[in-house]
Design a protein around this nucleic acid. Structure first.
Lengths: 337, 337
DNA sequence: CCCCCTTGACGAAACGTTTAGCTAAACGTT
DNA sequence: AACGTTTAGCTAAACGTTTCGTCAAGGGGG
């Protein structure tokens, strides 16, 4: 690998001049500029990002910590964040916490040791874990997205989860459903809690109550929802609609329905939070509440850029609105039900 | 951020001793070791990966360049690679080429400038582009996976694409299909070509020929396959089965079938290469040819580790076998067809 | 004509590690 | 007792940048 010294020698200038040419931070005459550029081309020189990072005490890296990249919501979020990061000149250092808080903590340290300019984290833990996270960040710009409770000491970018649940639940009510069940997420997580509260609040507002039999908890993965779905569909009275807390559990729920030889939406209506690329390819096509994923990514990168730029002010919270996407998996309940 | 110097001062030793304690590369007495460790804890010291990387001329970073993270095959591959990389002590620097060869080339340079230990790339171009890639790698350990033609000057890890096509086509033949169409991938790509050759070879072996009307080219994305599917389903004679070259195009094909008010597998059988997490959640469940994704990831990381370790030998090619996953989207053609 | 300011380029000192080479002490051998 | 050998630890020189301070040359104002 050619270094700046080699370039300088070939161009007959000092390394300082080469550096100035590259960074444009101070004036270099056109003549030298051209000699330097020629030398760079000839040697195939590329700057050593580690040396530069070491000297400057920071880098063009940003950390991105996600719980699980195979969940299509996270896949899309990673995709959007990576694209916007690249546009902003950042390279993404990817960490997967695998839903383990301990791993998440390790990853924060890892990011720091790699001198990232900042980190975007999608926390996988409960409120307490999140508070802990913001403490660990100390010094490193951190933005928490998605599962980020208010009160964290860092910028947060989240969906309006209550509104998402409200949209879904109101939609079911407006179709005439009165016996509505839910498959909620892990109780300690912020997003689960909000979605569940949104759900119950709407029902209570209508004077409806949800029986304990009609509330199941999953872990946001497929299998747990299949089991929960089977239980719900065997309960009496059988719910005419199910509100599912995320996309993966939606799949599990559909499996349960199929196993019971029931049909969506004839026997039961299903709605979930998180749209996903193939929701329109299923039979029936799936009604969902869509998160504005790209807007989340944009806001996260935006906040990070500001913090990296040295902005010192109180943590800011960005809350974005969801959107109801009506497809075929919900319709009015059968009269005879 | 505390540095090694701070630790050394607090522990009353030299920085060299701290370094030795951390790396274990030379002997340090138990007493000093403990003093150093105590100081590290007290200061919350974490090594500066850039300084270490600069000095050692390499890092614990590996580059990973993929065309498109939202394609579930790539999602899963990234997931597996990232997991195995983490197990091997590497951190993944993620680059997305977005199917653009120029971007891919930039990313290789980017990885190099970040002093990665090595890079795994899933090339997005044709044979020539791939040859070019191996040249660009010069000096940096590179492993090409998936769309990697033989003859590249680097280690390659690929699916036996012809066998995959053979499994799929033979399955259709064994069910009794004789009018079989295909939606192939972009012609210049290695994987497309192999899959297409596998398909035609099997048919020709049976004395069957494929009409030009029954061969469509897509771009591996959903929309192109929808169009191709519509065209195929309107051709005469209508094919009784379609072999689709990848998972995203499978979705597009299913959409086309639905738009034509036809039904799978009654009116047409559909099979594709690339299994994906929800293939079993569709109605009907989808018959596919599964790539051994984790084995691909394992082999890629394994080769990379060897090369990073300094192995100098001729490029090696790992070819892995696919597996037919029979579900509901293929069955015998209707007699009256 | 002198002084001062600006401009363009350079030299050299960092940044936080790793590591080769060195020192001094401790030990075992004759 | 003199000598090598081993050991534990230290000193200092890199690694490839960035950047501060310096410097010479040139120009303009007094």
């Amino acid at each position: 690998m050619a270094t700046m010294k080699d370039v300088a020698k070939l161009a007959g200038v000092s390394v300082a001049t080469v550096s100035s040419t590259l960074s444009g931070r101070s004036f270099v005459s056109d003549e030298l500029k051209q000699r330097v550029e020629a030398a760079i081309r000839e040697l195939g020189y590329a700057p050593n990002a580690m040396a530069s990072g070491l000297k400057r005490g920071t880098s063009s890296l940003i950390g991105l910590i996600v719980p699980d990249i195979t969940n299509p919501f996270f896949t899309e979020l990673v995709h959007c964040i990576q694209r916007r990061a690249a546009e902003a000149g950042f390279v993404v250092l990817l960490g997967v916490s695998d839903d383990q808080v301990a791993r998440e903590v390790e990853l924060i340290a890892l990011m720091r040791s790699h001198q990232v300019a900042g980190t975007i984290v999608i926390p996988c833990g409960g409120e307490q874990d999140c508070m802990n996270l913001s403490r660990l960040a100390a010094g490193m710009p951190l933005v928490a997205a998605d599962n980020a409770p208010p009160g964290m000491a860092v910028d947060t970018v989240v969906l309006d989860n209550r509104m998402a649940a409200t949209l879904a639940t109101s939609h079911l009510l407006s179709l005439g459903h009165r016996i509505i069940a839910t498959i909620a997420g892990p109780p300690h997580r912020f997003v689960s809690h909000e979605r569940f509260v949104g759900f119950t609040t709407v029902l209570e507002g209508k004077g409806l109550s949800v029986g304990a039999d009609h509330v199941k908890r999953g872990d946001f993965h497929v299998a747990s929802a299949r089991e929960a779905g089977l239980a719900l569909l065997q309960s009496a009275p059988r719910p005419t609609a199910i509100f599912v807390a995320n996309n993966q559990m939606l799949i599990g729920t559909m499996q349960a329905v199929a196993e019971m030889r029931l049909s969506v939406p004839r026997d039961v209506s299903i709605i979930a939070i998180d749209d996903f690329p193939w929701a329109a390819a299923f039979t029936p096509t799936l009604t969902t509440v869509r998160q504005p994923i790209d807007a989340l990514a944009e806001a996260a990168i935006e906040r990070l850029k500001l913090r990296v730029g040295g902005l010192q002010e109180d943590p800011c919270r960005v809350v974005l609105a969801p959107e109801l996407v009506i497809r075929q998996s919900c319709r009015a309940p059968l009269e005879d039900a």
